[in-house]
Design a protein around this nucleic acid. Sequence first.
DNA 1: TCCTACATGTAATTGGTTACATGATTAT
DNA 2: ATAATCATGTAACCAATTACATGTAGGA
Lengths: 181, 181
Amino acid sequence: MALEHAILVSLLEQPGSGYELARRFERSIGRFWTATHQQIYRVLRRMEADGWLVAEEIGQDGRPDKRSFSVADDGRAALIAWLRAPVQPEAVRHELAVKIRGAAFTDDAGRAALIGEVERYRAEHESLLFTYMNGEKRDFPDLEHLDVGERLQHVVLRGGIAYERMLLDWLDDVLDTLRAL
Amino acid sequence: MALEHAILVSLLEQPGSGYELARRFERSIGRFWTATHQQIYRVLRRMEADGWLVAEEIGQDGRPDKRSFSVADDGRAALIAWLRAPVQPEAVRHELAVKIRGAAFTDDAGRAALIGEVERYRAEHESLLFTYMNGEKRDFPDLEHLDVGERLQHVVLRGGIAYERMLLDWLDDVLDTLRAL
DNA sequence: TCCTACATGTAATTGGTTACATGATTAT
DNA sequence: ATAATCATGTAACCAATTACATGTAGGA
């Protein structure tokens, strides 16, 4: 229900094409909201039809034309109204937790395989943490002089960093537990 | 993709009816996988047709009959195979983070409303943390004598507790940031 | 010559939510 | 009376994923 709103925020921060949005969803926005390009194009069409966005055709030589979207007044109003609505309880989908509880029903070889998988998952999230921390240094070098938008982006990034740290600690706990069974 | 597997784990821990499963999904399993009763009944029918589950009809007087499901050999094999597969990257949907970044595009009154909403969200998660901690005391009073299943259930619960603590700390950071804008 | 980046889509399917529906028992 | 709990489902809809599709430019 909130992909529209994530797109509104992103286009208010910086107008752009569907393709550019899809790339942002792979990077910064993707930290807290994921979407594929197919889904983004579909939602963009609907938002344009609803008058939330306006498109500007940009002919490029050498490259395919692109349509750069900006937020219209109706779109901004829709975002502001949504900001006042209560946060919806989130659908939790934590596959690894299901697997850990499932480990009670497999044999030693299966448990060893799960330990390997948890190690791989841990390495992935460790590198994600480093990516976040490098992004923090790169994008917020001077914490004394941030505008409103940057301060809000930074607090969201701090949340991502806190999450990854917590996750790594917990995964160490999980590994100790699995190894001690 | 993994609701089937969450159901398999739950029914291996304890056989039960669709209704009982739905209640478990509201409680313990719901901490890491949510599902409504409608969805559970639909998936149960498919799993039974695939030979993953067997049902036992239990006539009850005074109450409607119920069908108690147990995991069949094929179901157990499907779970064991799935445990060895890599954990899928999770779809991230963090609505509150979208709202926080959206706060750059609203006025003081809108920001004040968002602060109120973050406070409400924080109170919800604080009470969830207390629920987890009470559940821990109740279900794992003697940490020295846990069987394999209990040790795995406990490490997953510790993950939930670590998450909620991290979230509360971050929400305090968010509130400080929003109030200082 | 092949891969990556740029740029945009359609079609089919699956997964999940919301609304609707029924009916008995037990507790207040 | 009435609300809550037990117990099971159907139907319609919406959101999201996966597979398929097309074409150019520039670098290795």
